[in-house]
Design a protein around this nucleic acid. Structure first.
Length: 326
DNA sequence: CTCCGCCA
DNA sequence: TGGCGGAGG
């Protein structure tokens, strides 16, 4: 049930860094931070990221340790933060609220059943980053001169929109949704050890011989972050059904299948709340000293873990000269 | 093929 | 989160 099915459908290949650099990457901030939060919290001693006041600022550690990877490979990150639900019509707001409540309920069920994977999935779908995490992340990124964009709603959708317009080369996220949102190229594994993974929309559509509408319909049948899949429909069956009947509506009609809120879910992918009113400067001139002071002094995060990160940031930016191009 | 549970 | 084996359709 869910996103992993898209992995089987998408055309994904591991590529050397040299094939993607240089470039600008719209990073889904929520996804990225959330990932770092969970791994940092898991593998790092609590004392490292908990302040005397009790605030957990693992996000600062994550940012300092995660950013060098971008700079060392001539990738300029643009962090896209989620916005609140806005500019939605009243009935859409109601429907969204309903959907959100459904997600919360599912989350509760998953917790009771001890379904760890499901909890993690729903957790990231429902949980908003705390205010402290949002604010401190923005502040640190700002000190490091990393561009930040505020999405009207879903960060992932906004990032895909920016990529589709050609204002950035890539969307950076571990999720597969960006494909459905129309991002031409998504990069995964940007912060892990090995090579990145490149997920290509056009190649995917060509290889599957589908339109994007049909791809989204297939995904909806399998299940997405916004809807449960139809029982019995995995990637193969869903693909076959959409090929056979043309689109989701025809599948529902001919195969006696129901997708709740099908039109809303489809609309979330094709007409998401995004903006073209943004600007960013890819010339990155960080105030590393100020950033270091912010993390180690103001938030009193102990030095060793982050010191190396800052050194790498300094080295990468002075050696490769990210600011030589725009 | 899908789903589920188990394990790394 | 992802890969794998086994049950069941």
């Amino acid at each position: 049930m869910g996103n992993a099915d898209l992995r089987d459908l998408a055309t994904i290949e591991e590529v050397p860094w040299s094939e993607v650099e240089p470039g600008v990457v719209a990073v889904d901030a929520h996804n990225w931070l959330y990932r770092y939060l969970t791994t940092t919290v898991r593998f790092t001693n609590e004392s490292v990221y908990t302040t005397a006041a009790g605030d957990e600022v693992a996000n600062l550690v994550g940012i300092v340790q995660g950013l060098p990877k971008f700079f060392e490979h001539d990738l300029t990150p643009v962090f896209v933060f989620d916005g609140g639900p806005s500019e939605l019509k009243a009935d859409e707001i109601a429907e969204r609220r309903e959907q959100r409540e459904q997600l919360e309920d599912q989350l509760e069920d998953a917790r009771e059943e001890g379904d760890a994977a499901e909890v993690a999935r729903l957790d990231s779908a429902t949980q908003r980053l705390t205010d402290v995490i949002q604010e401190t992340s923005r502040e640190l990124l700002s000190l490091l001169d990393v561009p930040v964009i505020e999405a009207p709603a879903e960060g992932e959708a906004q990032a895909a929109h920016m990529a589709a317009r050609g204002d950035v080369e890539y969307v950076g996220t571990e999720d597969y949704d960006a494909l459905l949102f129309g991002a031409p190229v998504t990069l995964r594994q940007l912060t892990s050890k090995g090579n990145p993974e490149r997920m290509d929309l056009e190649a995917t559509l060509r290889d599957l011989d589908l339109t994007r509408e049909q791809l989204v319909d297939v995904a909806i049948l399998c299940g997405t972050d916004f809807n449960d899949g139809v029982r019995g429909y995995g990637p193969k069956t869903a693909l076959k059904a959409v090929r056979e009947h043309g689109d989701l509506w025809a599948v529902m009609e001919h195969e006696d299948v129901v997708v709740e809120n099908a039109d809303l879910v489809r609309q979330l992918f094709f007409d998401p709340d995004v903006t073209s009113d943004y600007a960013f400067d890819t010339t990155i001139t960080p105030d590393v000293d100020a950033a270091r002071a912010y993390v180690t002094d103001e938030w009193e995060v102990p030095g060793d873990e982050v010191a190396r990160g800052f050194e790498r940031i300094e080295d990468a930016l002075t050696q490769t000269g990210l600011d030589d191009w725009t």
